[in-house]
Nucleic acid binder design. Structure first.
Lengths: 225, 225
DNA sequence: AAAAGAAGTGTATCGAGTACACCTATGCCT
DNA sequence: AGGCATAGGTGTACTCGATACACTTCTTTT
């Protein structure tokens, strides 16, 4: 029964990536200054069209790689946007994906040559289409995720100080936390390991560097911050 | 720049609805026995194709209405499924939506003439394509939602007893709860109002009937069960 | 009038979350 | 060399929500 399908219309399907990073105490988003139509010159998320030979998830991975050079980054869908006129040029149904990346690991040149740049989350320019909405939804997803899983795995360098970790969580939740209570929590999580290395860049005294132990985490993934 | 779009392929886009109900102490799912190809004779979710003149969200509303007769039901996306071969007939990208409905309000005849029926959640038949996965994702969504919002608004009749409400939550979480603690929580939520009506069908003594007050809820949406 | 069956009700304990202030180690400046 | 500036590091008490737990009440049926 070929007509079961063929009486129905077909659509362009795209993916858009909301990519979070953390640097210098604040959350950043990877945005693109469009040097192509439509809406050339405005800011948008990094996106691309789904192709015949790839799943939608694979399309998101491909787009992320084309932009940052990063592979095997864990991405998650945050929603699908299907309003008839969301893209004024043509009807496009878009699936939004979000990822957390370590801002020092990606390929900086690749980002530059795409006209992309990291923008502080609390100071975003206007975005094209419904990208503003996508960012809001991704941010809600991010906060939900951050409270139940150690997102520091993704966002921080391999070695980090407790102050850096706390700054990250303060940025995610948008509020200050108590240093002693924060450290008390961290001490309970066996998978956040103290090393005997010292970071002297942040203070005169120097701060102990910590590291995530992914194996320990998998054995007892109790997390709460 | 017309080619910006037209160099890309187009796809069929469908919606699939995961519809939860609650009756006789257990959670139910609305399933369809397919009397059409592909996979005629197997069980599937209710789905349909997105059309040119409607948003994806609207398509989901339309499909739900065609099946149950219900309009203005709150539905939420639970995910988009885009594997290349998920539908063996043709490439179809499907957006899954979930809804909670009061099992006594929908149009029973309409459901029957679509070959649909309510199936207990703990006793599902095998489903076509990736519908099993969609159900699992919807169930996770449902449990998350149930713990932070009063889903009883949607699932129970207008008047209900506390025992019915507790049974609902026991079914959602799959575990028994303490009656006194449960009622202590409910008593704190001003928007769950005791009426002076009595239900005598469930016991000899009779149980007080309660009602949700949606306005009170909106003023102080503190909820936890 | 006794039995059966669900409705309804209160208290004590435990643990998690939160509030809160001072000393320490080192580099830098004078 | 000594003092000051700066971030790092540490412990306790209180409050509140979560949990465990058992008996009485009301009405119908026999």
């Amino acid at each position: 029964m070929a007509t079961y399908y063929s009486i129905n219309p077909k659509f362009y399907v795209s993916v858009d990536c909301i990519i979070f990073g953390f640097d210098k105490g604040s959350l950043k988003l990877l945005l693109l200054k469009r040097n192509f139509e439509p809406q050339k010159g405005s800011w948008s998320l990094m996106g691309g069209f789904v192709q015949e030979d790839e799943s939608v998830d694979e399309a998101a991975q491909r787009v992320l790689k084309e932009l940052t050079g990063l592979e095997n980054v864990y991405m998650e869908q945050v929603g699908t946007y299907g309003d008839v006129h969301r893209d004024p040029g043509e009807r496009v149904i878009s699936v939004a994906y979000s990822a957390l990346i370590n801002i020092n690991e990606y390929d900086r040149e690749l980002v530059d040559c795409h006209n992309a740049s990291w923008t502080a989350l609390d100071n975003l320019p206007p975005l094209v289409f419904d990208h503003q909405q996508m960012v809001e939804q991704a941010l809600a997803w991010f906060r939900r995720k951050a409270s139940s899983e150690p997102v520091g795995f993704e966002l921080l360098p391999e070695l980090f100080t407790l102050t850096q970790l706390q700054n990250l969580y303060e940025a995610v939740y948008g509020k200050r936390m108590d240093k002693r209570n924060f450290r008390k929590q961290v001490a309970m999580m066996d998978f956040i390991e103290k090393t005997d290395l010292i970071d002297k860049t942040g203070s005169k005294r120097g701060a102990a560097l910590y590291r995530f132990n992914e194996n320990t985490y998998r054995m007892a993934p109790k997390f709460k911050l």
